[in-house]
Simulated assay, not measured.
Amino acid sequence: MATSLAIDEPVRRKPQYRSLIPGSSSKGFWVYLVPGLTLITLIILIPLVWNIYLTFTQYRGIKPPEWIGLDNWEKLLGDSTFWASFGNSIAMVVAMVVVPTLLGLVLAAMLFDLIGKKFGGKLASFLRATYYLPQILPAVIAAIVIGWILRPQNGALNQVLEAIGLGSLQHNWLGSPDTALPSIMIIMIWVQLGYPIVIFMAALQRVDPELYEAAELDGANWFQRFRAITVSIIRPEIFVVTLTCTIAALKVFGPIYTLTGGGPGTSTIVPAYYAYSEFFQSQQVGYGATIATALTIVVAAVAVVFVIAQTRLERKEEER
């Protein structure tokens, strides 16, 4: 009896899989990681460790580094220029994160939900490409164009103001401490706006159109549909855009270097440019490394905070 039951019972065996590569095992795949790990070590890890070491030294790039302990860090904490640069970084966060993300979210929703439906997808795609155009311009070319527009003597902006009878508003936009930083902020909004629009419009492609149609039949206006459907569904993309734009704002360098050089005074200086000036202009390599390391710590902390916040929000949504 027992024998017949054993025969009738189906034999359960673990499925056998054959490797795609004869004679290989799972351990062999580590070989394919060696080139990437080597490049990461040479390009990122070794320079990072060397940079951290230089923060504890006095080094001018010629003689060997001289160990001075925490002197550079003490100097950094009391450096008014350093704190001014971080204050300007907050302005860059507003110009490159807050305004482009909010404005880009609204514009993407309008292009997708209003213009795309009424005028067709081709017009919406054309406007999306138009908004994204500043992103693909080289920073130097964009700076040359903006510098020509804001030139104090014969710049396009001052010429237009004079032509329409507002010559009294002519100004040295990038040469005055009062207007240099706001001018840079406006430029960065123009440059950064296309990125969130493209990301958000791509995210909206996975939104079921029937949700908008049902909400519209229920009497919801465009803003109510935007708040209840658009924002809630593409929230992961909003986190991604906010994080990447925040990191870019903290590391911004090119526009400051090409347009103002951190001036006039320290009105537009940012940590990345301040570290560069200490490295290559003042030849204070140890102190420049300290500024760069402090900036790295801030960027890493911001990234961790964003990831934790997104994880907690996703858990709350799953619990619902």
Rank of each mutant, 00 (worst) to 15 (best):
E66L: 05
R206C: 00
I164V: 15
P209W: 09
G121P: 06
G120L: 11
T246Y: 05
A289T: 06
E210W: 12
V160L: 14
F239A: 05
P10F: 00
R320A: 09
F29K: 08
Q159G: 13
P264T: 09
L211H: 13
F112G: 07
I233K: 04
T101A: 10
G23H: 02
L259E: 07
K251N: 12
V191T: 10
V97D: 06
L250Q: 03
A109M: 05
R151M: 14
S26M: 01
N72T: 08
G87A: 08
G116C: 04
Q281P: 04
N172T: 14
G69C: 14
T311Q: 14
V94A: 08
F239W: 10
L70C: 12
G175I: 12
R320P: 00
A214Q: 07
R18W: 01
T244E: 06
L77I: 12
L133K: 13
A139P: 04
G23P: 05
G219A: 08
R60N: 10
N172G: 14
V302E: 12
L76I: 12
Y212C: 07
V298Y: 09
Q170W: 10
L77T: 12
Q281D: 09
Y59W: 08
L161V: 14
G262H: 11
N51T: 13
E74F: 15
Y212H: 09
L259C: 07
Q159E: 11
Y17D: 09
Q58D: 11
Y53T: 00
I146F: 15
L295D: 02
V49P: 00
E210C: 06
I189V: 15
E318Y: 03
Y131P: 02
G116N: 03
D208I: 02
A108N: 07
G78P: 02
K75A: 15
Y53M: 00
L42R: 04
G155S: 12
R151Q: 15
F226D: 00
T55H: 03
Q58H: 08
L54H: 01
I115D: 15
S24A: 08
Q170E: 15
D8Y: 01
V97G: 07
L243H: 03
Q192A: 14
I144V: 15
